[in-house]
Design a protein around this nucleic acid. Structure first.
Lengths: 209, 209
DNA sequence: ACTGAATACGAGTGAGCGCTCGCAATCTAA
DNA sequence: TTAGATTGCGAGCGCTCACTCGTATTCAGT
């Protein structure tokens, strides 16, 4: 807020922002392949066809790279699948709602393995909590909102617990989703949906559609 | 074959094995606090009140430390809660069976945070796959066996998928279990059981107790 | 054409890492 | 007592890492 974050009015933006995007593409590759901890900034620069000095012209340190990459993921996630978490899906019956939420999220995660690499690493907590919290927070809040629409009578703290458990449950199955071959994917996704559906059915008051 | 190389028969086992145990205790602390990747072997040695040279007298490299620690965890897990995965629990109705499995596992995981730290790290795959695979494999195989007893008619590959999903499902909720305060724990454990119970109920053939 | 900011480079720096090595101390067995 | 194995030490080796800096190049605005 206090910084000129978005509207720099810098010169030479065309070249510079293109370089930034290339560097983020490279970071995506390297993070997905090696994980955040083992990925070296020199390797990221090299993968982008740039020098270490150039990389540090755009990102003040390694953590900033991950933060910027995560921010880009969140933007893409929102614009590509924003409707997946549209509160309107709460009107659908449970199974249909889960289809509408899970399918695009699975597609996104499999199309962006770097996103999963950043989210899954638990010991990024120290330097990276600020980068990954928004992602989980966003999922949690949207699901909480949907549950609120679907079951208005549910006490808020119970609703929050249900939403959090559902998000963690999905995250727990993500490794299987990511590791599955294209052929095995439908079965895994089907099990994922079944698990979510079964859990939410018992967590919501009986009679909820 | 005049050689039987299996038995160590080392001298000075008393002092040496005590040191090994101290080093593993230290590794447990440091891994839990920093994670495997950021934990330094010098820090582990220092935490044990030993020198790096001493550490490498007992463990040939960093990976071997994690492997030995994981082996110790597995031993403790088996001797403390071996009955949790006793095939006999398959005779129990689903809810009771889940109680018998989940409660001791939750207690063990909360009492041994280093175990969780090693299991949760996804990018230990490269150097550490050999160390953590037995742990997950053990859980998966025992659950698979239980399911076989409980639902003999289930096709093997479907049973394997169900067991794998159940294990991942539990692992996904582990972060909540580990992070929960003592006061919040019962609610989290209850949700965990509900999720497992709901999933298994739909995955097993109807009519299974 | 000139200037200054933005972009680009890449060898280099300091720190930290896993791990080694020479050597000293301690213990067992004879 | 002596020999040999085990345990112990800690400075330091070789290496990789995140990051810097002096310098060179490319543009926008004038």
């Amino acid at each position: 807020m206090t910084e000129d974050t978005v509207k720099p009015a810098r010169k030479r933006q065309a070249r510079g922002e293109k370089r930034m995007a290339e560097l983020l593409d490279a970071a995506e590759e390297v993070f997905a392949a090696q994980g955040y901890a083992k990925a070296s900034t020199n390797a990221i620069a090299a993968a982008a066809g740039a020098s270490p000095g150039t990389l540090y012209q755009f990102f003040k340190n390694k953590e900033a790279i991950a933060e910027a990459l995560m921010a880009r993921y969140l933007t893409r996630l929102r614009e590509a699948h924003g409707e997946a978490f549209d509160p309107a899906v709460a009107e659908l019956p449970l199974a249909a709602m889960i289809d509408r939420i899970i399918d695009p999220v699975v597609a996104f995660d499999r199309a962006n393995p770097g996103f999963y690499a950043l989210l899954a690493d638990p010991h990024l907590a120290a330097d990276m909590a600020n980068a990954k919290r928004p992602a989980q927070q966003a999922m949690f809040e949207r699901l909480d909102l949907i549950l609120k629409t679907k079951a208005p009578g549910l006490p808020p703290e119970q609703r929050a617990l249900t939403a959090e458990v559902a998000v963690h449950l999905f995250r727990g199955l993500l490794p299987m989703v990511m590791a599955a071959t294209e052929a095995a994917l439908p079965a895994v996704v089907s099990e994922t949906k079944r698990a979510l559906s079964a859990y939410l059915a018992t967590a919501l008051p009986p009679g909820t559609p």
